[in-house]
């Protein structure tokens, strides 16, 4: 079955947010399936996927079954033009790596959400929370980015697991110098101590 046809079947179920057209979804899925191996949304009646096809993180299908547009509606990313792909690797909380081909101008929050990585972006990418916190693994890449402004630093001060090379994903915009960037999603779970209540 062709990709557009599969999506056309899945669309009514996904009830995509109006601001995203079916066309952009198709392009977006085409662009990213190769890199991430995430299976396309399947029709509900389809039998369970074989272990071979199952991605090591919640797939778009699993994440979308309950919700309108799930994370898709937040990822305003354009697929890269052939030959202009930049690569960014996200290392998730379980340590799994996701290498993605992206366009110059996309920010890390949008990229992560378009690919169903676990990044929340509670304030919608307006630099008003710390839920899209990422840690740049390589100082050299960190130094190539414009310095975080006061507002971003203020939010980072509240982030769990802050590191020297921490950034907010919504503020990191991909550009050719950042090709090959690797970022870690912080493991944010912490035990609440009784002292937290005092």
């Amino acid at each position: 079955m062709s990709t557009p046809k599969l999506l056309a079947q899945a669309l009514p179920r996904l009830r995509l947010a109006p601001r995203r057209t079916a066309g952009s979804i198709v392009r977006h899925v085409r662009c990213y399936t190769a890199a991430t191996a995430a299976p396309l949304p399947a029709a509900p009646s389809r039998p369970a996927q074989s272990p071979m096809r199952r991605a090591p993180w919640p797939t778009p299908m699993q994440r979308r079954t309950f919700s309108a547009s799930a994370t898709v509606s937040h990822g305003h990313v354009e697929p890269p033009k052939p030959g202009e792909e930049l690569y960014v690797t996200f290392i998730d909380k379980e340590g799994a790596e996701h290498k993605l081909a992206v366009s110059s101008g996309d920010n890390l929050l949008d990229i992560a959400q378009a690919n169903d990585l676990e990044m929340e972006g509670a304030c919608g990418g307006s630099c008003a929370c710390s839920t899209c916190h990422v840690i740049v693994t390589d100082q050299e890449y960190y130094d190539k980015m414009p310095e975080p402004d006061d507002d971003e630093n203020d939010m980072l001060d509240l982030a769990f697991g802050l590191q020297e090379t921490s950034r907010l994903g919504c503020q990191v915009v991909m550009k050719p110098e950042l090709d090959g960037l690797r970022v870690k999603l912080p493991s944010m779970t912490r035990n609440l101590q009784s002292s937290d209540f005092k």
């Binding site: 309950f66 919700s67 919608g124 307006s126």
Partner: peptide
């Protein structure tokens, strides 16, 4: 602080299930 209220978009998504 309207930007802080943007999390409502996520809640809308949850509620539309």
């Amino acid at each position: 602080h309207p930007e802080v209220k943007n999390c409502q978009e996520k809640f809308e998504e949850v509620a539309s299930s």
